[in-house]
Every structure is written in structure tokens, then in C-alpha cells.
Design a protein around this nucleic acid. Structure first.
Length: 939
RNA sequence: GCCGAAGUGGCGGAAUGGCAGACGCGUCGGAUUCAAAAUCCGAUACCCGCAAGGGUGUGUGGGUUCAAGUCCCUCCUUCGGCACCA
């Protein structure tokens, strides 16, 4: 079995030779230049400049106890290369780093060990900072921020209060101060409390009863991230949903703008599509179905069931209705005979996790309420059921069931023997159940004969005329559940007024800016209470507050981890400002972020939440752009080294991989468990479709790279790579592996490959003969040969173009080719090697600085102008061109570059092999494209 | 099931519709060395051929084109996301 240390031992270059010889030795070069940059404040970024700005941002990490993962430096290297490149191109570059440091692991660790989360967090940050610094990134460390720093979360809390102080004006399509919310006369008439309640109903931050993930076994509420497939991530205990008063953020008010403003952004289409799907806009109608026998206790508004449908055209086919089990009307309309059954069903579905409820293979279930509604189109009585295939949280929590045109309704109708009426004519050969396609309406009164789109228009007009419903847009996006029953997060800066008995009156008082930051109380016991109440409730002294003779309790929920990362890109612009979150003028200069790089796991939530906050800040006048991140790139995942796995049965026979389920290692048919046997490269060979055992070629072997994980033991530690090969090799390898966005497997041999390249660069310039490092005698102040000159200019062009297109792997290839060329030259022009050093500088900055110094320069090359190529020097005198006959290459000819089509044709015809292939044929067509090829079509 | 991305040598990968496999790894041969490591030079898709050369090749099947890895259609596989959203 191959393990990590074996890999290092096997592939490591002998360190003794590098220490003794004046060879490339990153272990001494790299600390030297890192110290230089720090001492000279080389990458300190002044707030303003006359130069064009470039704000290049990494998704800042959560500093986990495990230290940096090789996945982190992938994105960081890409952005660092671009930051350094842009500086050399004359841009004023903002390139900061910080820590997303609130979160669960520190709290879990505290529960286990008693260590304060702030301590472990600082320790982890120190490790991350050291590791990141060891890679030589050009961050302006003066701008470092930490979301758990009170000077930072003061403003996170301030933004929360801004959200609390904002309502969404649908007319103006923007968030406005709550003081500007128009209060209806009728509300005002009922007094201050009614006005306050009305305002609370409209705030972007509001409270509601919302279901949370309650884990009875752990005695705690879990965040969604902690729930995997309906079980707790830790311990694998069942999780149920229970309602609890929660803070919510009204992100749904911004759904349309979040969708619309996505369009012009320079993001990958994939990410945009994921966001669009998440927002999930659909157009349709809201329709009111009157109850057939409304209970006398209900008001007129209450005695109708509102539904949302995207297919109002199928209204005539609505043969029953379904309410979500949690729908408030259920208890009001259920008849006495059905009470028991309905209550039992409600309780059963409450116990189910989301996963169980959405389990697709299960049969549809439901219970009849005993009540009926009137289909407004057919005027017939239709039964009202409850079923958990209808979600309380989408639309109105109720549907009109149209089994003829909806597969889910069809399945339900079949189970409970409910009527099915087709109201869209399916095609003649239709054999399916519900028909969702287009077709003429049937059995639909005045809609008959109309196709779907037209029928929708007609029925909506009819509904609106008759006051039965209206056009409506619905979003899948839900409001953001913002509170966590946790310790290690930002406290929510609100006070709840309590009466003499200590009960909350419902009145809420926000803290003033002067009272911020509201710090966490120091606690010994972070353990969840065993009840679904936040641990902060146990800090009695902290919770109880008295002011102006009134008693208050602090809010004990904390903010989710997303909060701190929602606006950090803004704080980097003005990280030490203690008067406001960010100076308006600085913000105007730096925003938007020109390039944002990070993992695809944040494709939806983080980016959506940050965009939402940004838009609120925009509406309230604190930022000047509608969007925070102009260009977004997601780096791909780095997998472990390729592994070969064979499967062996209990009896010791090899089992071919195609018969085995790769995840469980069990037989696909018999489910017999097999043993996994790791193989070395020497034990396998490629056989047509896959790898097989060398000794037993009939046995297929599983060959793939896996996600890095502690359990699998395939985690690569960046410290070890930097220690062995240096930061420059680490950086270069991460970029050379393949396209930034691609998922790719790690290879230690690949690291060694780029390390050898850096050694070649060193030897191109440095003498190997002398005892101490010395410039090679081959470096001379001479003009380059035309071929070398052309090579240099071509390389400048390739590297520049590739950097602009973020194709780091091919840029490195280009530099390798130039290095290989220069290596062969007995005399290497100083100008040529100097250009190579400058091109290499963003990628391998330590080596480049060292060589730059050896070449006789006094100062850092960080702000040297980027090399420029002369397009006139890219062309060769003679070029090789291919000659095709009927699409096949039959010859290659050297021709002067300026040859025109006619000259090319003549040159091609002169070639022996061409003549051979043309013998006895007639040329029907000749295509000669200068710089491309010459092609003859013959018959 | 739906949406998205991707399938190219032994491996990572490269190719504005114009010479498939750049560059790197690995492997083989050679130089250097007492020997090894490191380094340097050469070869390396597959098949036939001593060679010149020829044939076949970018997941599958079809199409467009003088010319397709690249464009269009079909299917298959892998990865990522969403998933009873009415």
C-alpha cells in the first residue's frame, strides 16, 4: 500500500546535492524574498492612486484546525499571479486576505475540551497565516480582517440593524427606511403598538415561526449544513423538524433583481444557471377556490383557498384540491368525522424529515378533510385533501389538483380513486399518464380549441374580470433563515422588552451604533441546553438588561456563518475605519471587485446572500454599484493521486471491477462484500477499455482519483510540498496541472516536473562551476539571433494572452519552451533571459526576484513594466506548410512566409510525393490559405 | 427525473473549422560517472513496413464541409448541482 510519506521518499531529489552546490535552492531563496517584501512593504496598497484600479479577491478561508488544504492555494495562486501581472501592467491592485472565523467546528471543539472558541480560532488563524505567507502571495497584510474581531463584527451587526430598519417598496423596487413606510389610516387608528406591529411585518429582518432541524439524540438544533440526508452529520442521528421562533431575512423581496442583475455579470453560465434555478422564477396565476360550506367562524377572505398554478389553462380539469398538512385552514375546515385521521396524518408528516417527505420512490399519501371547494370554472364541488406532496413553504401551500395534466396529481388520484379529466388533447399516439405537452383545450368551456399559451391568457383575463384570481409570479427562493441556536457567531443586537413577570411583550428595541459591537458573553459552558434554546440564554447576566426603568432580554440567537462573509469584500477597502463600515469615496474607487475566485461550493448561497446584502446597502446609499462581483471564476477541485484498486472475494479470488459497486465494494448482483486491494502502477496495465491485473488480464481494476480525505489517507499537506520543493514549485504545479476550473488529480511526479523546470531556469542564468552562486559566463550583452528574438517575442505574446485568458497551464508551457531553447544556446543574450525572468515573476516570484538581483538589479521586480512584444518580430522568413490531397496530408513544404495562394500552389505541386498522389488524377479544386495549408481535391 | 460541465496516448493535458497529441510526467535507448543520483541528448498514439511510405485513430452512431477533437443531430459514460417547487 502506497502512503504519503512513501511518495515523498520515492520522488524526493537528494537534498544534500542541492545544499552543497550553488544550485537552485528554494529553501534559502524563498524566506529571503518573503522577508524583503515584508521589510520593504512591497505590496502595501495605498488607498488611492492615479493608476487604473484592479480589485482581485479570493474567497477567504475558514481557518479549520486541519490547516491549509492544497485546494486553497490553487485559487490563491491564480489570483496572486494575476495581481502581480496587473501590477507590472501598471494597475493599482487591491489584493487582500482575511478569515471567515465564526463557525461550528471551533464551538464543537470548545464543547469537547473547554477551550474558548476564540483561542482555538486564533491558533488556527495563525497556522493558516503562516502557511499562506510561506507561499509568497502578494497580499497587503495591513488589510487582514477576521470576522470574529469585534472591530469587524461591529459592522456586521450594524448591517443587520440596517436590514431591520429597511422595508421593500414594491412600487419603487427598492429598500427604504422603515420610517418611510406608509402606515394605513386604519392601522394608525389602532395606536402605536399596531403601527409597530405593521412595521415589523414589513422589515427585511423579521421574526417568524419556522421549522428547524431538531436532533433529539444530540439535544440540539442543527444548522442545515450539519444535516446530511436527514441525519445529523455528527453521530448519524435522526433529525426532525420543529417550529421555533426565528429571525428571517426577506431575500425574496429582491428575487427579481437578483435574477435580472445576473445577466450582465461576467460569471460562468453554469453558475448563473445555478443561481437562476435556485431563485426559481415561474409565471402563472393565483386562483381562489371558495369553500362549499364555509364554517360560520371564518371571515369572507378566509373562506377561500388560494392556490398558485403555472397552468391556469387547466382549471376546468381541477377535480380536487390538496393542502399541505401544515396549512392553517386544515384545522378550520376538517369535518368532525375526519378529525382523527387528519390529525394523525399531520403528526406523522411533522415527524418526517425533508428527505423522507421528498423520497421520490414512495407512494403518494394523503387524507380527505371532509370539506369541499367550488371549482370556479366548472362550478362543481371538489373534495379537499391534505397530502405531504404539497409543500407548505412554496406558493400558497395549497394546490388545485389537475391529474390530467400533472403527473403527481395523477399518481395521487389513482391511489385514492379521484376523478381524472383531460383538458388538453394529447397526441394520438400518447400512451403516458398525465399529459404535460402542448395541445388544444378540451372539456374546458370557452377555452376549447385554444392551445396552452393562448388558453392561459384567456383564463387569466377571465379570472381577473370576475375577481377570482390574477396573474402572479412565484419564486422557489425562500426567505433566509438567519438565526442559529449557537454560541460562536455574531450576537444579534436587539433587545426584547419584558414585563414584570419576565414575559416578552413583543416590543423590540435595536441597539444604537454607539452600543456596538455587542460582544459575546464569556462562558464556560457552550453546550446546547438540551432544549431548542440557544446556549446564550445561559449567560444570565448578559441576557438581562435594564434601561430607563424598563427590563429587557437580549436576543440569544446568533447569526449564521454566512453573515460575516457577506460583506468582507467591502471591509477590505477600508479595514480600519471605526466610524463607518467603509468610506464612501474609497468604495467608489475600488468597487466592484474585478475578479473573484473561489470554490464552486459557494456558487449559490454565499454569492446570493452577498449580492442580497449588497443590494440593500446599495438601496440605502452605502455602496455605489448594483453588484459586488463583476467577474467570477470557480477553481476546480483537486483530487488525490490516482489509485488502482482491485477487489478480492473472501475465498481469495480476484473479482473484475465491473461486477463491483465502487462505493460499497459489494457485488452488484449478489451484494457479497469484497476486500479492496490497493495496487501499485507496476501491477496493472492498460487493456483496451480499462486497466487490468498484469498477472490476470481478465480482471478489471478500478482506476480513479478520489477526493482527498483524512479517512482515505490521500491528503497532500502543502507544508510538506513547500518544504521539499519550495513555494515556487508548489505554485507552478498547481497552475500547470490543467485548466483552473477543471477537477484534476494531484501528482507528486508532476510537482517534481515543474521543480526541474525551475532548476533549468536557474541553470540558464547561473553558473554551476563556481563554488558560490555566480552568473553564467554564457549570459552576455549581445543582440539575440533572429530565431531567439522571434522566440522571445512569441513567448511574451503567448504568456500575455494566456494570462489575460487565465490559461495558466499553457502560459507555463510557453515559458518551458523558451527555457529549453535558451538552454541550447552557447551564448545567451542578457535581454532574452531578462525577459524570461519578468514573464516568470508572477508565477515563481521568489526565483524571479533572486535571478533579477543576480542580473544586477537593485530593487524588486514587482513593479517592473511587463514585457511588450513587437508583432513585426513574430514572423519567420520561412514557414512549414502542409499539403493535403483529399483531406490527407501528403507533404510538408518550406515556403517563404509572404507567399500568396498562387505561389503556394506552385510550390506544393513541385513536391515529389504530391506529384505521386496526383498521377492520373484531375484536380477539381485547390484551396491555398497562406499561413494555414494547401489542399487539393482530386478525382 | 431535470439543469450544467466534461469524455483526446500509459498519466496530467495542448490544439481562432486548417499538419491531433504542444508542454510536463512516465517508459525505452544513449552520453556523463568507478558506480549511482542529478544532468544532458534522442525516441515514444496504434497497426503494416528494413526503409521510403501507407493504413487507422479525439466516448458511440449519423450529418454539414475541400477540411471536424472543434459545428449540427442521436445515444452512452463520468462528474457537479437541483429534485413532489404546482
Amino acid at each position: 500500500m502506497l502512503n504519503r510519506s512513501d511518495l515523498f521518499v520515492t520522488y524526493r531529489l537528494d537534498p544534500r546535492s542541492s545544499a552543497a552546490m550553488p544550485a537552485y535552492h528554494p529553501q534559502s531563496i524563498e524566506p529571503k524574498w518573503q522577508k524583503y517584501w515584508e521589510d520593504h512593504q512591497t505590496f502595501r496598497t495605498p488607498d488611492r492612486s492615479d493608476r487604473p484600479k484592479f480589485y482581485i479577491l479570493d474567497m477567504f478561508p475558514y481557518p479549520s484546525g486541519a490547516g491549509l488544504h492544497v485546494g486553497h492555494p490553487e485559487g490563491y495562486t491564480a489570483t496572486d499571479i494575476l495581481a502581480r501581472y496587473r501590477r507590472m501592467k501598471g494597475f493599482h491592485v487591491l489584493h487582500p486576505m482575511g478569515w471567515d472565523a465564526f463557525g461550528l467546528p471551533a464551538e464543537q471543539y470548545a464543547i469537547q475540551t473547554g477551550a474558548h472558541p476564540a483561542e482555538t480560532t486564533q491558533k488556527n488563524i495563525d497556522t493558516f497565516r503562516r502557511q499562506i505567507k510561506s507561499l509568497g502571495f502578494s497580499y497587503d497584510w495591513e488589510r487582514e480582517i477576521d470576522t470574529t474581531d469585534p472591530r469587524y463584527f461591529k459592522w456586521t451587526q450594524w448591517i443587520f440593524l440596517l436590514l431591520y430598519d429597511t422595508w421593500y417598496d414594491v412600487e419603487q423596487k427598492k429598500g427604504r427606511p422603515i420610517a418611510e413606510l406608509p402606515i394605513p389610516e386604519e392601522v394608525r387608528g389602532r395606536g402605536d403598538a399596531a403601527v409597530a406591529a405593521f412595521q415589523d411585518l414589513h422589515r427585511l429582518a423579521y421574526q417568524t415561526e419556522a421549522p428547524v432541524n431538531w436532533c433529539p439524540a444530540l439535544g440540539t438544533v442543527l444548522a442545515n449544513e450539519e444535516v446530511i440526508d436527514g441525519k445529523s452529520e455528527r453521530g448519524n442521528h435522526p433529525v426532525v423538524r420543529m417550529p421555533l421562533k426565528q429571525w428571517m431575512l426577506r431575500i425574496t423581496a429582491y428575487a427579481e433583481r437578483l435574477l435580472h442583475d445576473l445577466e450582465p455579470l461576467d460569471w460562468s453560465e453554469a453558475i448563473k444557471e445555478m443561481q437562476r434555478n435556485w431563485i426559481g422564477r415561474s409565471e402563472g396565476a393565483e386562483i381562489r377556490f371558495a369553500l362549499a360550506h364555509p364554517p360560520a367562524t371564518l371571515s369572507e377572505a378566509e373562506s377561500a383557498i388560494r392556490v398558485f398554478t403555472t397552468r391556469p389553462d387547466t382549471l376546468f380539469g381541477a377535480t380536487y384540491m390538496v393542502l399541505a398538512p401544515e396549512h392553517p385552514l386544515v384545522s378550520l375546515i376538517t369535518t368532525s368525522e375526519q378529525q382523527a385521521a387528519v390529525r394523525a396524518y399531520q403528526e406523522a408528516s411533522a415527524r418526517k424529515s425533508d428527505l423522507e417527505r421528498t423520497d421520490l420512490i414512495k407512494k403518494k399519501t394523503g387524507v380527505f378533510t371532509g370539506a369541499f371547494a367550488i371549482n370556479p370554472a366548472t362550478k362543481t364541488k371538489i373534495p379537499i385533501w391534505i397530502a405531504d406532496y404539497v409543500l407548505a413553504s412554496y406558493g400558497t401551500g395549497a394546490i388545485m389538483a389537475v391529474p390530467g395534466q400533472d403527473q403527481r396529481d395523477w399518481e395521487f388520484a389513482v391511489v385514492y380513486n379521484l376523478p381524472i379529466v383531460r383538458t388538453v388533447q394529447p397526441p394520438k399516439d400518447w400512451t403516458g399518464e398525465a399529459y404535460l405537452g402542448d395541445g388544444p383545450a378540451i372539456e374546458s368551456g370557452f377555452l376549447n380549441g385554444l392551445y396552452v399559451a393562448e388558453a392561459k391568457q384567456q383564463i387569466i383575463a377571465w379570472l381577473e374580470e370576475n375577481g377570482l384570481g390574477q396573474r402572479r409570479v412565484q419564486y422557489k427562493l425562500r426567505d433566509w433563515l438567519f438565526s442559529r441556536q449557537r454560541y460562536w457567531g455574531e450576537p444579534i443586537p436587539l433587545l426584547h422588552e419584558v414585563d414584570d413577570q419576565g414575559r416578552r411583550t413583543g416590543r423590540i428595541v435595536p441597539l444604537s451604533v454607539e452600543e456596538l459591537p455587542l460582544r459575546l458573553p464569556d462562558m464556560k459552558d457552550y453546550k446546547p441546553s438540551g432544549q431548542p434554546e440557544p446556549p446564550l440564554g445561559k449567560a444570565v447576566d448578559w441576557v438581562h438588561v435594564e434601561r430607563h426603568g424598563k427590563r429587557y432580554q437580549r436576543e440569544t440567537n446568533t447569526m449564521p456563518q454566512w453573515a460575516g462573509s457577506c460583506w468582507y469584500y467591502l471591509r477590505f477597502i477600508d479595514p480600519r475605519n471605526d466610524r463607518m463600515l467603509c468610506d464612501p469615496e474609497k468604495q467608489r474607487y475600488w468597487l466592484p471587485v474585478d475578479l473573484y475566485v473561489g470554490g464552486a461550493e459557494h456558487a449559490v448561497l454565499h454569492l446570493l446572500y452577498a449580492r442580497f446584502w449588497h443590494k440593500v446597502l446599495f438601496d440605502r446609499g452605502y455602496v455605489s454599484t448594483a453588484e459586488p462581483f463583476q467577474k467570477l471564476v470557480n477553481q476546480g477541485m483537486i483530487l488525490g493521486e490516482m489509485e488502482f484498486t482491485a477487489f478480492r472475494s473472501k475465498k481469495g479470488h480476484w473479482v473484475s471491477a465491473e461486477r463491483v459497486d465502487a462505493d460499497s465494494a459489494a457485488d452488484k448482483d449478489t451484494e457479497e462484500p469484497y476486500e479492496r486491494v490497493k495496487l501499485s502502477e507496476e501491477q496493472v496495465e492498460k487493456h483496451s477499455e480499462g486497466f487490468v491485473l498484469k498477472d490476470e488480464p481478465g480482471v478489471r481494476v478500478d482506476a480513479r482519483a478520489y477526493k482527498m480525505s483524512k479517512a482515505r489517507g490521500n491528503v497532500i499537506n502543502p507544508d510538506q510540498v513547500v518544504g521539499e520543493y519550495g513555494a515556487d514549485s508548489m505554485r507552478l504545479y498547481e497552475m500547470f496541472m490543467g485548466p483552473l476550473e477543471a477537477t484534476k488529480p494531484w501528482s507528486m511526479r508532476g510537482v517534481e516536473g515543474v521543480f526541474r523546470f525551475l532548476n533549468r531556469v536557474w541553470r540558464v542564468m547561473m553558473s554551476e562551476e563556481s563554488e558560490t552562486p555566480k552568473l553564467a559566463d554564457a549570459i552576455q550583452d549581445v543582440a539575440p539571433e533572429p530565431e531567439t528574438e522571434r522566440f522571445v517575442h512569441l513567448t511574451i505574446k503567448r504568456v500575455t494572452d494566456d494570462l489575460d485568458g487565465m490559461r495558466f497551464n499553457t502560459a507555463i508551457s510557453a515559458m518551458m519552451e523558451l527555457t529549453n531553447h535558451l538552454t541550447k544556446l552557447p551564448v545567451r543574450p542578457r535581454s532574452a533571459v531578462q525577459t524570461l525572468v519578468l514573464l516568470l515573476a508572477p508565477f515563481a516570484p521568489h526565483l524571479a526576484e533572486e535571478l533579477w538581483e543576480r542580473l544586477g538589479h537593485q530593487a524588486t521586480l514587482a513593479y517592473e513594466p511587463w514585457p511588450v512584444f513587437d508583432p513585426g518580430k513574430l514572423k519567420a522568413d520561412q514557414i512549414e506548410m502542409a499539403v493535403q490531397i483529399n483531406g490527407k496530408v501528403r507533404a510538408r513544404i518550406m515556403v517563404p512566409a509572404e507567399h500568396d495562394a498562387e505561389q503556394l500552389t506552385q510550390a506544393a505541386l513541385a513536391h515529389v510525393n504530391v506529384q505521386e498522389h496526383l498521377k492520373g488524377k484531375t484536380i477539381k479544386k485547390t484551396i491555398a490559405v497562406p499561413n494555414k495549408l494547401i489542399s487539393f481535391v482530386v478525382a
